[in-house]
């Protein structure tokens, strides 16, 4: 009897050790599950077509850098990469700025009218792209934007607004009223108040929204699938998928394109991990 507590204790020490190891193992396995396929893809992107079949699993015997240069030319990345950058940058900047303006304008929610507008904007999250894309197509064609990058930028700006308004309106409403009053007293016009006081104070929220919208705009597949027919105005996800139609066996080329399309976001993510995680979560939890 007297030795029982001691026995228990040593057992639990051992148990703690086993438990800890098991937990670490779970985390390692999960990480491998995520990283393994990515690593395998990067390796594959350096292989020649014959090597895929001779040596599908090992490191490439000969690193075919030219997969990347061919992806640049043959897979039209020389067109779609700049397109993606331009479209995402412009749409993110404009959409976030407009969403901040709306959020500030609506933050005086004691007015019923503003509350209704807020609900309307947020309800935009539920609108299925499938339903509006053809009318949109017709409108864009009518105003002559079809066939230009604006055919993507304009819809992206609008579609980024609901999330932006959702995330930013509570932040704008929480700004101390006195700051706005003080600026008003100090002689600032409404526009100066917005640019010099409100915008800088909402910066953390703006970054969240910019990331939130930037990620989906960069990755968006369906909208450019319908609205961007030719490589000159396509973004990378669609560019790659349509390229594969004609080169389906050129695996190395396909994967080097995928790597190029993913790398910028991954780098941005690694540089600003915290902002990405909190920004994306903020949008998700509110949505």
């Amino acid at each position: 009897m007297s030795s029982a507590p001691q026995l228990q204790r040593s057992q639990s020490d051992f148990g703690v050790f086993v438990g800890k190891t098991a937990r670490t193992a779970v985390l390692v396995v999960a990480s491998l599950w995520v990283l393994g396929p990515l690593f395998f893809m990067v390796i594959a992107s350096f292989k020649s077509v014959p090597e895929f079949f001779i040596n599908p699993f090992g490191l490439p015997k000969e690193w075919k850098i030219e997969n990347y240069s061919r992806a640049w030319t043959d897979a039209q990345l020389s067109l779609t990469l700049p397109n993606t950058i331009i479209v995402t940058t412009v749409a993110v900047l404009v959409s976030t700025f407009l969403a901040t303006m709306i959020a500030y304008g609506l933050s005086r929610k004691e007015k019923k009218f503003a509350m209704g507008l807020y609900t309307l904007f947020v309800a935009g999250l539920l609108v299925p792209v499938h339903a509006i894309i053809l009318p949109l197509f017709i409108v864009l064609k009518a105003v002559g934007l079809f066939g230009t990058l604006l055919a993507l930028i304009v819809p992206y700006i609008a579609m980024g607004l609901p999330l932006g308004v959702l995330v930013l309106t509570p932040i704008a409403a929480a700004l101390p009223r006195d700051l706005v009053h003080a600026a008003r007293m100090d002689g600032a016009t409404e526009w100066q108040i917005f640019i010099r006081i409100v915008l800088p104070l909402m910066k953390p929220g703006l970054i969240s929204v910019a990331i939130l919208n930037g990620v989906w705009m960069w990755n968006e597949f369906f909208i450019p699938l319908i609205l961007a027919f030719k490589p000159e105005v396509q973004t990378m996800p669609v560019g790659i998928v349509s390229f594969i139609g004609s080169y389906s066996t050129e695996w190395g080329l396909v994967f080097s394109s995928v790597v190029v399309s993913t790398l910028p976001v991954v780098i941005a993510y690694l540089l600003m991990t915290r902002q990405f995680q909190s920004g994306l979560t903020a949008g998700a939890v509110k949505g």
Partner: peptide
Amino acid sequence: HLWFVLPGFLFFLAVMLLPL
């Protein structure tokens, strides 16, 4: 303050509401 809402609303109207 609703002037601040207007520009965004026009985008929203043209791209979401009217097509809907």
